[in-house]
Amino acid sequence: MADAGSPLHPLRPVLEQITPTCCPGRVNFHCHTTFSDGSLSPDQLAQRALELGLEHLAITDHHSIAAHAPVTSLFRAIADRGGPVPRFWRGVEISCLLEGCLVHVLALGFGEDHPSLEPYLQGHAAVGPALRAEAVLRAGQHAGALMLLAHPARYRIPFKWLISAADQLGFDGAEAWYDYEQNDNWTPTPIVCETIAAELRERGLLMSCGTDTHGLTLHGR
């Protein structure tokens, strides 16, 4: 696995091509199953992804990667029969403290061997020094993940401040395109998302997008 900060990371060129229209029909890098607080089982979510014809998918349950194995097995079986499947990336959503604010971070594209992430895969947030953003960032980087700030406009601290702090620490980017209004059919929130994208672009940071699905469809949250 390439180092997360390296231009050789296989997920980097995918994120470099993200646009406001990629989600939900082509890519989804933020969604949840029953292994955290979602309503879809891993197999059900995988079937929704197949029905949409997704090209790239990451399941980002909170502090759990238990959904990865069954989804990988299902996609592999379909691919072995010659069927089209999304490129499936390992992902997890991790809580951490950034500038004294509890935020969520998406670790995407890490390798099969990820011992540094184990403290964050226990079904709940870490405590003490391990909760600090610096610690979460190091753990993700050691596992070969790209580290992105999730939905930066959902926190009590202004997103420009948080993006600046994440950039200074060495995060790879943030979730640029997000439906803060939580429509039934996912739509990136105007002005807010465009401003976030401009901030990331100016800093040379990666952009991601996802539905943050917790319900029964991958069309929205």
Rank of each mutant, 00 (worst) to 15 (best):
A69K: 12
R26E: 12
S95P: 00
S6F: 13
G83E: 08
L200T: 03
D37Y: 02
L74R: 10
P13Q: 09
H124F: 10
A126K: 02
Y120I: 03
V136W: 01
A174N: 06
C31S: 11
L121M: 05
F171P: 03
T213Y: 01
Y120S: 09
A174D: 04
L162M: 00
L131M: 12
A46D: 05
A2C: 12
T211Q: 10
P190K: 11
V136S: 00
L206F: 09
R221T: 15
T217M: 08
L102G: 06
P158I: 12
G111K: 03
R81A: 10
V71F: 03
H214R: 10
P70W: 01
M207T: 11
P152F: 07
Q141H: 15
T19R: 11
T21D: 15
H151V: 14
H151P: 12
P84S: 10
D212H: 11
R201M: 06
L169P: 09
I65S: 04
A197T: 00
R154N: 01
F75C: 01
P119T: 03
P10I: 13
S164C: 08
A198C: 06
S208A: 14
P84W: 04
P42G: 01
H32F: 07
G204N: 10
D80T: 08
G38W: 07
L148V: 15
A198E: 14
G173L: 08
C101M: 10
A125K: 11
S64T: 09
H68C: 02
I65E: 14
A130P: 00
G91D: 10
E55C: 02
G111C: 12
I78M: 04
R48M: 04
L149W: 09
D172E: 14
R26N: 08
G204L: 13
A176S: 11
H214W: 03
E16F: 12
D113G: 06
A49N: 07
Y178C: 15
G210F: 11
H114A: 15
W89Y: 07
W186A: 10
L97N: 05
L149A: 11
A139V: 08
G128D: 05
L40H: 04
F88V: 07
G128H: 01
H104L: 07
A197Q: 05
A46H: 01
E199G: 06
D3K: 15
G111R: 08
L131C: 04
L50E: 06
G173F: 02
A58R: 11
L162E: 05
S164N: 14
C31W: 02
Q182F: 14
R12V: 09
G38D: 03
E51W: 03
L149R: 04
L74W: 03
L11D: 10
I18E: 01
R87Q: 15
C193V: 00
L8V: 14
L108M: 12
H142F: 05
L98G: 01
E118Y: 08
I157F: 00
R138P: 00
W186D: 08
A77H: 05
L200W: 10
S39H: 09
W161L: 15
A139P: 00
C22L: 13
Y178D: 13
D167S: 14
L200M: 02
R221E: 14
T213I: 00
E181M: 13
F88R: 03
L121V: 06
A139M: 07
C193G: 01
T33R: 02
P115E: 13
